[in-house]
Amino acid sequence: MYSSELIKGTLKTIILKLLSDSDEMYGYELTQRVKELTGGKIQLTEGALYPTLHALEAQGVLSTNVVNVGNRIRKYYSITPTGKQLANDKVNEYADFIHTMTFLLGLKPNMG
């Protein structure tokens, strides 16, 4: 498990990327997918996930679809065209960030 500070800065990127790779997902599904893809190394906390989802929805980056499931309501999130663009930008930015950090922290000094 990584520290929550590390994850906090990348939360938006993770959500946007996962949603742009699938039609729609709900909150629990997102956490499970991340857990599964990272072998449990990254676990999204609900306390950070839902506020971010709401903010992205308010920004118009995500759209929602409400479905009745058994005795409760489930809110599916999908990405909008502007969201797709943002997801791309975020992933590229992050890739660049990793590159810079690798150099900065001297992980592979011969790189760069």
């Binding site: 909150g27 409760r72 309501i73 489930r74």
Partner: peptide
Amino acid sequence: LDKSQVDYILNDIRRNGIETEELQYNLLDH
């Protein structure tokens, strides 16, 4: 979960200070 259990959780979420309805349903489902 049956309906009474779902209601129980929803009420508990509300009691614990979650005011936005959409957030209540998000957390309830989760």
